[in-house]
């Protein structure tokens, strides 16, 4: 999958939790879930669970710790997919 495909697949996952819908439309690898999208920290776990379901991967606690940006999420998903 290309980077843009990942971003396009992440956008609808993030949409229900993003309080800043404009930042959601401008989504890039650098977009921060909390600082830019204004996602409530308690919803980060929903993002992690949704990403696990959408990409059929298991995100361990060590990976989850770093999953604070779009780019980090893509890298984690790619690494898990490559490891299969």
């Amino acid at each position: 999958m290309e980077q843009q495909e990942y971003i396009d697949k992440l956008k609808p996952i993030l949409a229900p939790y993003a309080k800043d819908q404009e930042a959601l439309q401008r989504l890039t690898r650098d977009t921060s879930f909390i600082r830019d999208l204004k996602i409530n920290s308690a919803n980060l776990v929903d993002v992690v669970l949704d990403v696990e379901e959408a990409f059929d991967v298991e995100i361990d606690n060590e990976s989850m710790e770093k999953m604070l940006t779009v780019g980090a999420a893509i890298d984690i998903v790619q690494a898990k997919q490559d490891a299969r």
Partner: peptide, 22 residues
């Protein structure tokens, strides 16, 4: 601070896997 009404709307803590990750 947690607004309990807002938390009930925004989070389903009974979702499978939710408690285990937190």
């Amino acid at each position: 601070i947690v607004d309990l009404a807002c938390a009930a709307r925004e989070s389903n803590w009974q979702r499978r896997g939710w408690l285990q990750k937190l």
